[in-house]
């Protein structure tokens, strides 16, 4: 046990006195940045895909778009996110001649990835809205797109907010692989501390604790949100 106390001492020196905490803060910031902006991009992409999925398919364009979306969703759900990161960072962007900081590549890839997942969540949310709502909006002369954006999607989002919260948690966990393309996240920060103090036990323990606290805090927020939403539904 005295051994463990020594390890904590070493960690603290590295963390506090040698400014390891700045790296941890940067890592935390990157993790949250990638997850938050990634989810935001995912929600936009997912909403567009979900709307395309529910457009009446009389015309050719929506059918083609829908097939493309299905392909996209299949691709991003069917491959590990690490592989997507590596492919975009080392193959797609270099081929396109695009140079971008690795954090931004991560944001884009996580956005594209969560777009595929959010599209399914959003589609079920849209399906859960009474079809009479869309009909009423169309009947007063609003176009399909405007009706969706002003009437259907807001109600769908309300129905799926808790599920989106869980998607956010999933994203935070998945961002722990971004160091594969050189983005500095929590793992990179604690790995740095470990490498420089020749002592990995405490750093990785603290890293695990940070992830647990982060995820639990968000899960709590989601539950509070869920409860207040249920309250506002009680009049129905």
């Amino acid at each position: 046990m005295g051994n463990f106390g020594k390890k904590i001492e070493v960690f603290w020196k590295m963390f506090y006195e040698s400014n390891g905490y700045t790296k941890v803060l940067t890592g935390l910031q990157n993790t949250m940045y990638i997850a938050t902006v990634g989810l935001a991009i995912g929600i936009v992409i997912g909403t567009i895909i979900a709307i395309i999925a529910v457009i009446p398919k009389y015309k050719r364009l929506p059918r083609i778009l829908d097939r493309f979306c299905k392909f996209y969703v299949g691709l991003f759900r069917g491959t590990p996110v690490v592989v997507q990161l590596l492919v975009f960072y080392y193959v797609v962007f270099p081929l396109m001649g695009v140079k971008m900081p690795s954090v931004n590549v991560c944001v884009l890839v996580f956005g594209l990835n969560s777009g595929a997942y959010v599209s399914e969540i959003m589609r079920s949310g849209i399906m859960s809205v009474d079809p009479g709502q869309l009909e009423a909006a169309r009947a007063v002369g609003l176009s399909f797109g405007v009706s969706m954006m002003k009437v259907v999607v807001p109600q769908a989002v309300k129905n799926i907010l808790p599920t989106l919260g869980n998607e956010f948690i999933a994203l935070i966990k998945e961002t722990s692989v971004v160091s594969f393309v050189g983005a500095a996240d929590l793992y990179v920060a604690f790995n740095y501390i470990g490498t420089n103090s020749y002592e990995f036990m405490v750093p990785y323990l603290v890293m695990a604790l940070i992830y647990i606290v982060l995820v639990m805090a968000i899960a709590l927020l989601v539950r509070i949100m869920e409860r207040s939403l249920r309250k506002s539904d009680r009049h129905n």
Partner: peptide, 12 residues
Amino acid sequence: GMVFQQFNLFNN
């Protein structure tokens, strides 16, 4: 104008 059996007011 159209009026439905189930009213269909916009819930949001």
